[in-house]
Design a protein around this nucleic acid. Structure first.
Length: 800
DNA sequence: GTAGGGTTAGCC
DNA sequence: GGCTAACCCTAC
């Protein structure tokens, strides 16, 4: 075929209009599109478009006024344009749908629709589907047509031709832009399927006017099942797939029979949808105009077929073509000609026909096996197209399940191999690594990777992009898993610790790790221990056995490494802090266990203490004694005369067992402390037995909240933190809950820094600052927290 | 105990 | 995803 360059440039436009005209587009849109085509092109190269457009206009006329005549006034060979002229309706494409035609127009339209060649795009697609070598595999893959090659093993030589789709005007450019978009789309297949599906639905609901709507509604009401759109589609498809086995009577009866699938179509609540014309029109642009020769051949073939059909010479062929037309042009229009037979009758016929078809024969391959001549194959290729576009899975399943079409399977393998032939990087073939990621199409040479290929455990290759994505996803998953595991472990540890404490099987773990405990603070009340005498005596025995120079009062050091020290009133806040920091409940639990575990011992000095913190005057002596033994600098802090007496007694006792205590000095707590003694005292505070509230408001109810602070101080205990011993490997602890800093805390911190900061030493005594603001800082604050917070403050305003 | 870097969670 | 504050870890 020889076309002018101008015609070539308009070809995509013509094809698009043609497609629209074949699919019941709005006449107003259609006429506008036709008007855009230059007259010379329209007369010479777009006659089919004119014909289709005219036919569409005829179709769109008010059928209620067309009458009942069978229509013999127009021959199928007459062109629609002439019919319009004869009806005094010049084809100026500005027609109103309310125009009246003679009654035979309807029949003419029906016959004309059957006679006209198939839409060029449809033919184009069929040709492509027939010839696996016609287009590059990549293009076929993108177009979504690749699988259809399986249904037709016919191989054709690629036709020759020129590339005429270069845009020469704005319209063509618009289409070309769409083409580019479509070519880049990896979901082309789905879109084609969707478009075709919509098209079929659209065809089922042409704009026939009120009369046909009533007919259609009547059809719908006869359907038993209110299936959805897809179900209706599938059922209709099965009916259409039976050309080989469905032999109609002849002539008009065939139309009647064909109405049944349409009625099947109407089962669901189908609404008219807009066909993705743009997409379909753009898809054709991907096809080279070199296949035009094949298209023309198909057109001629279609014309011949129409001629044969009208003569009633080839019944199976008629059926096949008719079904094809039904599929492509919308059989509902034919339903308009159903005048004599009831819907039920047609339905019964259809069902009877369907019953003759085995499930296997419903697939394109199965049907193809029953067809022998070329024409039938041609038709079936269309069927295959239809299947693929609308139900790709259906085609795949049936194709691969049909063992007798090994050639098709071979074709698939071949095509699959073809798509991996070029390296994504260098665009050269060879041995390529194919990315195993499902959505990734990259194939590369190993040398083009620029590094070592990434394989998974199953030796599957992943391109760097996918490898990174997988790694990132895996990393994210691992982090989530880690977080969950840590929380689960922390929860388990807490439960386990609680259990161990109660069972006394293992030594307690460091209470600092008990950040969350469910033990009630009321346990403090239980610190009035019944076995205090034995405990104290045990302590004394331990003191006597002390050999360490530090003289640590290792009351339970064999298991916990905690020692009891005495604190003065000045250190009450520190004790309080330590008590709360360590967890009051845990501490009291610890003490209770300690007491319970201390065996009954002979009283060293013949005195028995009634209570551990309830007014005994002997216990403070022991405590003070420990302090005596612990004071390397020989200073013992006391607050009052009572304490002084206690300390004196302790010193005397210690002198019995330890000559190193001779230099001990008893100092009143109100007296200024030397830096050394002060820090020494502070340094040993970690845990405090909260048998007496350090902070009355936060103390346990019922304890000596109103008790004199001084006596309270005397009866406070602290437990020194020692090396942590875990029965299991060290594991990350549960992260503390974030506690925002209050303004008061910040101010206290700043004040503390101002007071304790040493210009000559960059080391900040955070511990001191913490003590300084102990009343203000949150109980959970640590010196490190202060340091971090100060760092943050400095970041915001370095001059603070 | 402290400093400094790293990590995490919440917010935008 | 970036930023920030709070928290954590490790070396000294």
């Amino acid at each position: 075929m020889s076309s002018s360059p101008k015609a070539c440039s308009w070809r995509p436009w013509i094809w698009a209009v043609e497609f629209l005209a074949s699919n019941h587009a709005e006449t107003s849109i259609l006429t506008d599109l036709v008007k855009k085509i230059p007259d010379d092109v329209l007369e010479n190269d777009a006659k089919n478009v004119k014909e289709l457009a005219s036919l569409r206009i005829l179709e769109s006329l008010d059928v209620s006024r067309k009458g009942k005549c069978n229509g013999v006034g127009f021959a199928p060979s007459d062109c629609c344009e002439n019919v319009l002229r004869q009806e005094s309706l010049e084809p100026n494409y500005d027609l109103s749908e309310s125009e009246t035609l003679r009654s035979d127009v309807e029949s003419f339209v029906e016959n004309k629709r059957l006679c006209l060649p198939k839409c060029t795009l449809k033919q184009l697609k069929d040709v492509i589907l027939k010839d696996g070598n016609l287009l590059p595999s990549s293009l076929k893959e993108r177009s979504g047509l690749l699988i259809n090659n399986l249904s037709d093993g016919v191989t054709k030589r690629p036709p020759e031709g020129s590339n005429c789709d270069a845009p020469e005007n704005r319209k063509v450019e618009d289409l070309s832009s769409v083409k580019r978009v479509v070519e880049d789309s990896v979901t082309a297949n789905q879109r084609v399927a969707s478009a075709c599906k919509q098209m079929i639905v659209f065809n089922a609901y042409p704009n026939f006017g009120a009369a046909m709507k009533r007919k259609r509604d009547a059809f719908c009401t006869q359907q038993v099942v209110e299936g959805n759109e897809l179900a209706s589609f599938n059922e209709n498809r099965r009916v259409e797939d039976v050309p080989g086995g469905m032999v109609s009577d002849s002539g008009r009866d065939e139309s009647n029979l064909d109405k049944e699938p349409q009625r099947k179509f109407f089962k669901g609540d189908i609404s008219s949808k807009n066909v993705d014309y743009d997409f379909v029109a753009s898809k054709k642009l991907k096809m080279s105009s070199t296949i035009e020769a094949d298209l023309l051949r198909n057109n001629k073939q279609a014309t011949r077929n129409v001629g044969k059909m009208t003569q009633g010479a080839d019944e199976p062929k008629k059926v096949g073509e008719h079904c094809a037309e039904l599929r492509t042009l919308g059989g509902s229009r034919k339903a308009t000609t159903h005048k004599t037979k009831s819907c039920d009758e047609a339905k019964n016929k259809c069902e009877q026909s369907c019953s003759l078809i085995s499930p296997n024969s419903l697939c394109c391959g199965g049907v193809k096996a029953t067809m022998e001549n070329d024409h039938q194959r041609e038709f079936l290729s269309s069927v295959g197209t239809y299947h693929d576009e609308n139900d790709d899975i259906f085609v795949r399943e049936n194709t691969f399940s049909n063992a007798q079409y090994s050639d098709s399977q071979d074709t698939l393998a071949k095509l699959n191999g073809q798509k991996e032939e070029l390296c994504t990087i260098c665009k050269i073939g060879g041995q390529l690594l194919v990315c195993s990621s499902g959505s990734c199409q990259r194939v590369v040479h190993e040398r083009c990777l620029g590094g070592v290929p990434t394989f998974d455990a199953k030796r599957r290759f992943y391109c760097p992009f996918c490898a990174y994505s997988r790694a990132a996803a895996e990393y994210s998953d691992c982090k989530k898993q880690l977080s969950l595991t840590r929380k689960a472990l922390a929860s388990f540890m807490d439960r386990e610790k609680y259990r161990l404490r109660n069972s006394n099987v293992l030594g307690r773990e460091n209470e600092n790790h008990l950040r969350e405990t469910d033990v009630s603070d009321k346990c403090i009340e239980q610190n009035n221990l019944q076995n205090s005498a034995s405990r104290v005596n045990h302590a004394r025995s331990m003191i006597h056995m002390k050999e360490k120079p530090s003289g640590s009062f290792d009351l339970i050091s064999s298991r916990e490494g905690e020692r009891v020290v005495l604190v003065t009133g000045d250190e009450n806040t520190v004790a309080k802090r330590n008590a709360e920091r360590s967890g009051r409940s845990a501490s009291c639990q610890s003490i209770r266990e300690q007491v319970q575990q201390v065996p009954e011992l002979d009283v060293h000095n013949g005195k028995v203490y009634n209570s551990f913190c309830g007014g005994s005057k002997e216990l403070p002596v022991v405590e003070k004694l420990q302090e005596v033994l612990e004071q390397p600098n020989g200073v013992i802090l006391v607050k009052n005369n009572e304490e002084r007496k206690i300390a004196s007694q302790a010193v005397r006792d210690s002198e019995v067992h330890n000559s190193n205590c001779k230099d001990l000095k008893i100092t009143h707590g109100n007296e200024p402390l030397t830096e050394t003694s002060r820090e020494q005292d502070v340094s040993d505070q970690l845990l405090v037995l909260p048998c007496v509230p350090a902070k009355p408001l936060r103390c346990v109810e019922g304890t000596s909240g109103k008790q004199d602070d001084k006596s309270v101080a005397c009866h406070s205990f602290r437990f020194q933190k020692q090396e942590q011993h875990y029965p299991y490997p060290s594991v990350p602890q549960l992260r503390r809950k974030k506690v925002p800093w209050s303004d008061a805390e910040e101010e206290a911190l700043k004040e503390g820094v101002r007071r304790f900061a040493n210009n000559h030493d960059k080391v900040m005594p955070w511990k001191k600052i913490l003590e300084f603001g102990a009343e203000i800082f949150d109980n959970h604050r640590t010196a490190i927290d202060l340091k971090d917070k100060w760092r943050n403050i400095c970041k915001g305003s370095p001059k603070v």
